[in-house]
Nucleic acid binder design. Structure first.
Lengths: 165, 165
DNA sequence: CTTGGAATGTCAACAAAGCTGACATAATGT
DNA sequence: ACATTATGTCAGCTTTGTTGACATTCCAAG
């Protein structure tokens, strides 16, 4: 990158270009959530349930507190969602082994099944977008998204990624 | 499934890679809305008001129906938001010239001021992310986002972009 | 000119999912 | 022993979405 603040770079840093990026994020996010929303709408669940399922699936045994940090909601709000998931037998809450105040969260068989169904749909869209845009575009996509995150959330993102399969 | 499109492509189409993309979208969107949310929280407005202001600013004179299509909410929901914006003197609703059933929406001076304040903050974050990632990454970012949109919304995105300054 | 349909607005009721504040319980750690 | 932490829960509120019903206004077709 030859010219950090110089003439050429200004081309994609005009307000108009930035505005297009903002609108692209807005419309793309609608697509991003469209398939999960469609599936969830047929059940008694919403986006909040999906998010909980996703991150429990991703880090089995995670604690409530940990999940609060990831999702950025209050414990009351998360608790309402977790309670229904536990009541409906999609999530299991086990008392912590080392610290008995904590609850370790796991998906049950049914929970795994639903999470898979939803994330299959979401991954299918992502896969199609990645294929259409090509590998280099994907790398750029990831770079910009990471740069856009709040620093604290970026750390979480990296941490979760390292846990990952 | 050894070789769908040729070896290299499989690397970023694994479920794990797709999952990381999904999580990147989730965390990045939080960053994307963080600054506007902070500004709006100090007033009586929320994200819905911001979205209305943004697209009215973008396409002055747009109709209610047009806005409904862009935002993807019900007219009742949008109407509640528009009513407060009109009452507070941020938006002006003029009866259509050719079709008097329609309302053409415009920002007032105050509306322009608030929209600018919010979008300045949002553009600043976008600008920082673009700078950090570099021009090639930005191109890829945009390509993947466009590929991720629902076809109908992609058309709107293009249409709005062409109106743009 | 009348009438059907479209665009808009409004009222009422409701749901999802966020929030704050307050309080209880149990376990940890100093 | 005591303060702190992790969690759960109750009550009440806000924002933003939803349906359904109904009025108004106006264009356009018969």
């Amino acid at each position: 990158m030859p010219d950090v603040q110089g003439g050429e770079n200004l081309l994609f840093l005009t307000d108009e270009q930035l505005r297009q990026g903002i609108e692209a994020m807005f419309f793309a996010y609608r697509g991003f959530t469209a398939d999960p929303d469609r599936i969830l709408a047929t059940m008694d669940y919403g986006r909040a349930h999906h998010r909980a399922l996703h991150f429990i699936a991703r880090s089995p045994g995670t604690t409530v507190n940990n999940l609060l940090g990831i999702l950025g909601v209050t414990k009351q709000s998360l608790n309402r969602v977790l309670r229904t998931l536990i009541e409906n037998g999609l999530v299991e809450s086990r008392i912590g082994a080392t610290d008995k105040r904590e609850r370790n969260l796991f998906l049950t068989e049914d929970g795994v099944a639903l999470e898979r169904k939803i994330s299959d749909a979401q991954r299918a869209r992502m896969r199609a977008a990645y294929r259409a845009a090509g590998p280099e575009a994907v790398a750029g996509f990831r770079q910009v998204l990471e740069a856009m995150m709040e620093p604290e959330l970026r750390k979480m993102y990296y941490r979760i990624r390292e846990n990952g399969a």
